[in-house]
């Protein structure tokens, strides 16, 4: 995994983004080191997805300096795209192709060499081997999600961006994903994931950082600041309540 050439996995300063006159993010600063996992909490419509979309070159920031895996997503989007793996709300897989065909297609889009072996690796990593040659349409939601994760790790990106990956995953798959992320961090990669699930986020965040996205910015939380786990949970839960906006 090549992480050379950049000190930070993600570095964001003074990020601003609004849709028309609807401000979503403002004065957002964020730093993530290699080998770190950031779990991001936040209520609905608070800008979690928007933040991930900006980091993954899918949306253009209004202001601020960004460095994702060492590159500027606005100026050199393709360099960033090569180095990130994204799991979004949608699977980005075609229903009428098999898992394997989908992965081969993405492998070719990324210009990978040795595609068949990589595809096999990715498929076995998400334990989907027995279903790899079925059409995506015939798979359950959880399995589609797993295939989507396989797609994201296919080109072995140092940085993973996961938007509510727990949605639709069963217990077993969640454990699989947790193991995968841990492995990712241990081998020097980094990951940002958003979640609604306090228990899950707390468990996953144990090894990394926990942040809360609210009020247009990310506030990194240190569990040590709070008296006990219960209080911390309370704080995190309250951050998930959607506020009434005018």
């Amino acid at each position: 995994m090549s992480v050379a050439g950049s000190d930070f996995a993600v570095r964001v300063e003074g990020l601003e983004k609004s849709f028309g006159h609807w401000p979503v993010l403002w004065d957002l600063d964020l730093t993530l080191d290699w080998g770190q996992l950031l779990v991001l909490f936040g209520a609905n419509a608070v800008g979690k997805t928007t933040l991930l979309r900006i980091l993954s070159t899918q949306a253009r920031p209004d202001a601020g300096t960004l460095s994702v895996a060492g590159y500027d997503p606005v100026r050199t989007p393709n360099a960033v795209r090569r180095r990130i793996g994204v799991v979004g709300h949608q699977t980005c897989l075609y229903d009428d192709l098999t898992c394997r065909e989908n992965l081969v297609y993405y492998g070719r889009l990324f210009g990978l060499t040795d595609i068949p072996r990589r595809v096999d690796e990715a498929i076995s990593r998400v334990s989907l081997g027995h279903r790899a040659d079925q059409r995506v349409r015939t798979l359950s939601n959880g399995m589609q999600k797993r295939a989507s994760i396989a797609r994201a790790i296919l080109h072995r990106p140092p940085l993973l961006l996961l938007d509510e990956p727990e949605a639709g995953l069963d217990q077993e798959s969640t454990v699989m994903l947790q193991g995968l992320l841990k492995e990712w961090a241990e081998s020097g990669g980094a990951a940002i994931m958003t979640t609604h699930n306090v228990d899950l986020g707390l468990a996953w965040g144990e090894t990394g950082k926990i942040g809360v996205l609210a009020d247009g910015k990310v506030q990194v939380q240190e569990p040590g600041r709070y008296a006990n786990v219960a209080e911390f949970r309370q704080v995190l839960s309250s951050s998930l309540v959607t506020r009434q906006r005018n």
């Binding site: 899918q58 393709n78 709300h89 949608q90 980005c92 075609y94 229903d95 889009l109 995506v136 797609r151």
Partner: peptide, 13 residues
């Protein structure tokens, strides 16, 4: 439908 375009746009093409 399944975000295929999104996946396409996320690739370095």
């Amino acid at each position: 439908e399944q975000g295929g375009l999104e996946g396409l746009l996320l690739s370095p093409v």
